[in-house]
């Protein structure tokens, strides 16, 4: 007892001694408490029947009823399937794209040309999905969009890229790649820049051309970076791209395009089913956290760079 008091006293002394340092931290701490930790407590409404009038703590406890409802709602499995499917397709098609582009950019000897292409490729990254959705609305419009004009010329006929459930996911994936491929190269180009030039000189003495240099030097040196980014992307499997889908989907494509986040928004904020949608969100966060911890520990085992 006495020892403990002594310890607290010593600690308080420490705070007093370094009070200026602590004062610098206080605004950030206040922020974290008010805007991160207090909302976390709000998760309890997933286990309650939340009524606006009764407040978070006054509402009735219902145990796991919201989760029972969740697992007995067929549409929940549909959105879960959509979420994982869209993420999976992004991984399969979107993940290799920046690697390939970085390898190609690396072959450009003309520094200025390379710079111009890079700068152009970054443009979509700096624009919001609201703006990009506007751009694609015009580009893919069945009546006045150039893409459909070309398709018609080739006799394929009009395709409602954003309105046809058969095409929506394709459109989301393609436009997603278009938006992210340029910016995605940054990390790979940085890794390539870090490769020891002596390695290239060594194989060049053996007469290796550019293809062989890429195959035997550049690509193997990129493997650690590729592995880690792949693993980290897998961790985000339940994030299928809220910003993009919220701005590009419509009622006609809910069947294929509705993901967990958009579902939570519609049921929760539009439908005011606060408890139910918090349960959906909690389900997503817990599974998502599991994935992140799992993938990150794999990344940690494989290399030295991980999230913590």
């Amino acid at each position: 007892m006495k020892g403990k008091r002594f310890k607290t006293g010593a600690l308080l002394n420490q705070y007093w001694k370094h009070k200026e340092l602590f004062i610098l931290l206080v605004p950030a701490l206040v922020f974290y408490i008010i805007f991160c930790y207090i909302p976390m407590q709000g998760i309890v409404i997933a286990f309650k029947d939340y009524k606006l009038m009764q407040g978070i703590w006054g509402s009735k406890w219902v145990g796991l009823a919201n989760f029972k409802e969740l697992f007995s709602t067929p549409s929940f499995f549909e959105i879960l399937k959509n979420t994982v499917w869209i993420s999976f397709l992004r991984l399969v098609f979107g993940f290799p794209a920046p690697i390939i582009l970085a390898l190609i950019l690396n072959e450009v000897k003309h520094a200025r040309y390379k710079k111009v292409v890079q700068t152009i490729s970054y443009l979509p990254h700096f624009l919001s999905w609201v703006i990009l959705a506007g751009v694609f609305q015009q580009l893919l419009s069945p009546s006045s969009g150039p893409v459909n004009a070309i398709l018609t010329k080739f006799g394929i006929g009009q395709i409602y890229f954003l309105g046809d459930p058969r095409w929506f996911v394709f459109t989301i994936i393609t436009t997603g790649i278009w938006q992210g491929v340029g910016w995605g190269t940054v990390i790979y180009l940085a890794a390539i820049a870090g490769i020891d030039p002596q390695m290239y000189e060594a194989v060049m003495l053996d007469g290796a051309g550019r293809w062989k240099q890429m195959r035997y030097i550049t690509l193997p040196c990129l493997v650690p970076t590729i592995t880690i980014i792949l693993i980290l992307n897998t961790g985000g499997i339940l994030n299928a791209g809220f910003d993009q889908i919220m701005n590009m989907y419509n009622e006609g494509v809910y069947k294929v395009g509705d993901i967990i986040d958009t579902y939570v928004y519609r049921r929760g904020l539009e439908g005011m089913q606060y408890s139910f949608s918090t349960a959906v969100n909690l389900f997503k966060n817990v599974i998502g956290l599991g994935f992140v911890i799992l993938t990150n520990s794999i990344a940690k085992k494989m290399g030295d760079s991980s999230l913590w």
Binding site: F35, C36, L289
Partner: peptide
């Protein structure tokens, strides 16, 4: 304090609790 800062990177209250708050 570092842990306090790191936790919100991995877990958040989510859309609805934040909105109600």
């Amino acid at each position: 304090w570092t842990t306090v800062v790191l936790i919100p990177m991995f877990f958040s209250g989510g859309m609805i609790p934040s909105y109600l708050w």
